Simulated scan of single mutants.
Amino acid sequence: ERGINMLFVLGGNGTHAGANAIHNECRKRKMKVAVVGVPKTIDNDILHMDKTFGFDTAVEEAQRAINSAYIEAHSAYHGIGIVKLMGRNSGFIAMQASLASGQVDICLIPEVPFNLHGPHGVLKHLKYLIETKGSAVICVAEGAGQNLLEKTNAKDASGNTVLGDFGVYIQQETKKYFKEVSIPIDVKYIDPTYMIRAVRANASDGILCTVLGQNAVHGAFAGYSGITVGIINTHYAYLPIPEVIAYPKSVDPNSRMWHRCLTSTGQPDFI
């Protein structure tokens, strides 16, 4: 009705699923409309893509929070800094930020199960760190440890399950545990979510965003529809939307990158 024959949709898995539905409806109605997606999620959880724009900036900004937690923990007697980062289903930001900073002692992500309590639990290792190093920094992804929290079954406006706040939970459990073993600690909890989300894109993301946008427009003018654009094995490519929304990409616990992170933190398996 308004003469629109190209639709560009920017977002993550949910947004792409919506774009795919619009594309299918346009085909059903025989409308000549090109629907092209541009992957945008700081969680970096879109299938097949090397990275999505926003991720680099998020990791860079997350390091500032980790550095603040490190200084706070290091400056206090028996200081513990806890930083909660984004990552509902995937721990890419927490993993990369921990690896990049080199200041994290424990990194917890949704893909790797762990126990808080018990002889091999996170808190036992935290006690060891306080006794040997005198301070510790913990980095947790927001989706980590959800099996330890009470389930509410509540949904947000987009239909996603409302997650329990694991950052606050681990802060409370840490204080409780050290009180029981009569060790004084000074816990500082940092949740930089909105500072990371609202920051200006860095140079790398700015360039990536521009190139993805240009390629999306080229694809639409070439007559493609129901596709998304992204970097795959360092090459810019078009992919059918159903291919990238099958399920979210997540950290492989057997990958070299996760093992590099474990080497950096020095943490054991918490099982």
Rank of each mutant, 00 (worst) to 15 (best):
P242S: 09
G14Y: 06
F178H: 02
I106R: 00
L148M: 14
C107G: 02
R27D: 04
G91N: 08
D156Q: 08
E243V: 02
V35G: 03
G81R: 02
D56G: 15
R2E: 15
P242G: 05
N67T: 13
L85S: 10
L10M: 09
S182D: 12
G143D: 06
H218I: 08
K127L: 01
K40A: 15
S250E: 12
T228R: 09
N5G: 10
G18Q: 06
D156V: 03
Q96N: 09
N160W: 06
S98A: 15
Q214V: 11
Q214I: 12
H23M: 04
T228W: 04
N24R: 13
L116M: 15
Q63V: 10
T234D: 04
I71Y: 01
G230V: 04
I22Y: 00
D43G: 10
G18E: 09
F92Y: 15
V168I: 14
S135P: 01
A203G: 00
V104T: 15
I138D: 04
A220V: 08
A94F: 12
L212K: 04
T132V: 08
L212E: 03
V181T: 10
G164I: 10
G87R: 11
A19M: 11
K127W: 01
F221E: 07
P119A: 13
I46A: 08
P248G: 05
L10G: 05
N147C: 09
V251N: 06
N20L: 14
D50I: 09
I170F: 04
S135G: 03
K32W: 02
G206Q: 09
I66K: 05
C26A: 15
I232E: 06
K51F: 14
Y77D: 03
A34R: 12
M49H: 11
K133F: 01
G230L: 10
H78D: 05
G223Q: 10
A62H: 04
P110W: 08
K32V: 08
T15I: 06
V9D: 02
Y236R: 02
S75H: 10
V9P: 01
I227P: 00
C107V: 15
Q146R: 11
Y77K: 07
G223S: 14
K188W: 02
H117T: 06
C139R: 03
Q146K: 12
S75Y: 11
L262Q: 14
I245H: 05
Q267F: 08
K155L: 15
P248Y: 13
Q146G: 07
V122L: 08
V187S: 03
R88I: 12
Y128D: 11
D205G: 09
Q267L: 07
D165P: 00
G167E: 07
N115T: 07
D43V: 12
Q63R: 15
R88K: 15
D43P: 05
V199L: 06
R64Q: 13
G219L: 09
D186G: 04
I42Y: 07
P248T: 12
I227R: 11
V251H: 07
P240F: 14
E173K: 14
D56V: 13
E131N: 13
I183W: 03
K40M: 13
R64G: 09
S68N: 14
A198L: 11
V104A: 14
I130H: 02
K84Y: 05
Q103Y: 14
K30S: 11
K32H: 15
N147Y: 12
I106W: 00
C139I: 09
P253Q: 05
H235G: 03
R256V: 01
V140R: 04
